[in-house]
Amino acid sequence: MSIRLKLAISTLALTLAGTAFAQSSTDKPERIRGAIESFSGNTLQVHRRSGDTVTIQMKDSTHLNAVKAVQLSDIKPGSYVGAAATPGPDGKLVAKEVLVFPEAARGTGEGHYAWDLGANTSMTNANVDTVVQGTSGRDLKLSYKGGTNVINVPANAPVVTLIPATRDDLKAGKQVFVVAIHGKDGAYDGNFVVVEKDGVAPPM
C-alpha cells in the first residue's frame, strides 16, 4: 500500500468515526457529496446534492483517493468492512453500500454509529465473522468492540475498496465524497476527497 493511501486511511478513520478535528463546532468535519463543477489551481467547486455549490480548498495535506468496485463474493470471514445501512421492514439492517478496507486499515473507525446517507442510516465498521448466502444477497455477521450486527447486503448494493487518485482525476461532472471543515470566506478546507474514477462513484 502506498504511503499516500495509508495517510488517507488514517484520516478516514477519524471521519468515519465522526471524530472532530477540534473542539469548536466550526472545526467539526462536514461530509459533502455531489458533482465537481470545476477544479482550478487549488480550488474545487462542488455542486452538492442539497442543491447549493460550495468551494473547497485543496491543500498539500488533503488526501485524495478513488474507489474501485469489488465483488460481494470478495467479502470473506476475516474481512474488515464499513457498511452503511438502514433498517428493513423486519428491522434487519440492509446495506446501502459496503467499503472493504485494505488489511493495513483494519480497525479504521471501528464501531456502530449514526451516518448521513439518508434517513435512519447507520455506519458499522467491523470485522466479518460469518457470511451466509440468502435469497436476497448475503448476510454479514459483524463484530466490533462493544457489539455485533447482522447486515444484509443485497446483490445490487455497491461494494468498493479504496485506491489512490491524483488531481488529474478531479474533472467536471465527476462525483465526489468530501470531508472538510469550514475555512475562510465561506469556503471549506478539504481533509479527505474520494473522486469517481473509471465510472465508479464513491457510494459512501
Rank of each mutant, 00 (worst) to 15 (best):
I3K: 07
L5W: 09
S10G: 10
T11L: 01
T15I: 09
F21M: 13
Q23F: 14
S24A: 13
S25R: 15
I32S: 05
I36T: 02
N42I: 04
T43A: 03
S50K: 00
S50E: 06
T55Q: 08
Q57P: 09
Q57V: 15
S61P: 10
S61I: 15
T62K: 01
H63N: 12
L64T: 06
L64H: 07
A66N: 07
V70M: 12
V81M: 04
A84M: 03
A85T: 10
G91V: 11
L99T: 00
P102N: 00
A105H: 02
R106C: 09
G109N: 03
W115Q: 05
W115V: 02
D116P: 01
L117S: 04
A119H: 00
T121R: 01
T121W: 00
S122C: 07
M123L: 11
A126M: 09
Q133W: 10
G137Y: 08
G137W: 01
R138M: 14
R138I: 12
D139H: 00
D139P: 06
L140K: 06
K141H: 15
S143I: 10
Y144S: 03
K145E: 11
V153A: 01
L162A: 12
P164Q: 04
A165T: 08
R167T: 12
K174H: 15
V176I: 10
V178E: 07
V179L: 14
G183T: 02
D185K: 13
G186I: 14
Y188D: 01
V195D: 10
E196V: 10
K197W: 02
M204Y: 08
